[in-house]
């Protein structure tokens, strides 16, 4: 028997793509899946079609994870995010293939996308313990007080991932959310969800606590609507919503005063992103402390 015959006799092992909720990989509660095809229309896989109940479960998981993740030291979060980049590097081939199929890129271009994505994780991993110095600090006030501002994570952030850039775009919107201590419920690109679902497998094996990132695939409008209206979601990033959907979601989000990041045109996902996506989901807390110094008449110790 030659090697060739062995190969043809082997049964194909298809991958069952699943959602990622609370550190586990469930099928959709609805039991539904939808077909995902590559850029030329060939079937790639069936992806789970998440329902609003999956969205609800994801929010519960994200809320549960928020205390631990936001309470972890910035240094520790940086290490964990760097670990994600390490794991991603180890599965480079898989992601190159998935991105090439999903976005119709050549292998070389897809490889460039994956490399940029790994670098993006590293970039944000470095920011975790620096963002506070950049956007927080001591404020000069006209009185005997220390006045200190510190940025704090907003809470549970729903992220509607970009539709076109299924991997680099995805990581470019998810990493800034979790780098600062938020937890995320991510709605993957409807057309190309597979890189996002595979990224979940990377997150699950890289010390990111379960629930910090939850990945849902399916009809973007169907999943995003309950998330935008959810009273326990604190912010929503509309990166992947088209104009009509974004408007609808923003109206729903107004009900509990969610922070809304409107879709912003991104010409080049490769460009260094700046810190805007991090600060969009930070809230500044300012505290006053007396300096302890007495007035001119008293002792100065």
């Amino acid at each position: 028997m030659s090697d060739k015959t062995v190969k043809t006799e082997r049964l194909s092992v298809f991958k069952t793509y699943k959602l990622y909720i609370g550190g586990k990989f469930p099928r959709s509660e609805s039991g539904r899946v939808y077909e995902v095809s590559d850029s030329t229309g060939n079937w790639l896989a069936n992806a789970p079609q998440a329902s609003r109940k999956d969205a609800r479960d994801a929010v519960v998981a994200a809320r549960k994870a928020f205390g631990g993740w936001s309470g972890a030291t910035a240094y520790n979060r940086g290490q964990v995010l760097y670990r994600v980049a390490e794991m991603l590097e180890g599965r480079r081939e898989q992601f190159v293939n998935e991105v090439a199929a999903a976005e119709g890129l050549s292998k070389a271009k897809a490889a460039a996308v994956v490399d940029a994505t790994v670098d993006r994780w590293v970039w944000y991993a470095g920011w975790t313990d620096k963002i506070v110095q950049v956007v927080g600090g001591a404020n000069p006030v006209a009185g005997p007080f220390f006045n200190l501002s510190t940025p704090e994570p907003t809470g549970v952030v729903a992220v509607v991932a970009p539709q076109e850039s299924s991997f680099l775009g995805l990581v470019s919107v998810v990493a800034p959310v979790i780098a600062t201590g938020n937890t995320a419920v991510v709605v993957a690109s409807e057309k190309a969800p597979l890189p996002a679902l595979s990224l979940a497998e990377v997150l699950a094996t890289s010390d990111v606590p379960g629930g910090v990132v939850n990945v849902l695939s399916g009809r973007t409008a169907q999943i995003a609507a309950p998330l935008a209206a959810h009273q326990d979601v604190n912010a929503i990033d509309l990166a992947g919503a088209d104009e009509a959907l974004a408007k609808e979601l923003e109206i729903a989000a107004a009900d509990n005063l969610k922070r809304v990041l409107r879709p912003q045109p991104v010409d080049d996902w490769f460009a260094t992103p700046g810190i805007d996506r991090m600060t969009a989901f930070l809230e500044t807390k300012t505290v006053w402390h007396t300096t302890g110094a007495l007035g001119a008449a008293g002792s100065s110790y």
């Binding site: 609800r56 929010v59 809320r63 309950p226 209206a229 959810h230 009273q231 326990d232 979601v233």
Partner: peptide, 14 residues
């Protein structure tokens, strides 16, 4: 109960 009344998922803040 709030979810049934409003159609929106509620949260522990409420």
């Amino acid at each position: 109960r709030q979810k049934l009344a409003t159609g929106r998922y509620s949260g522990p803040d409420y």
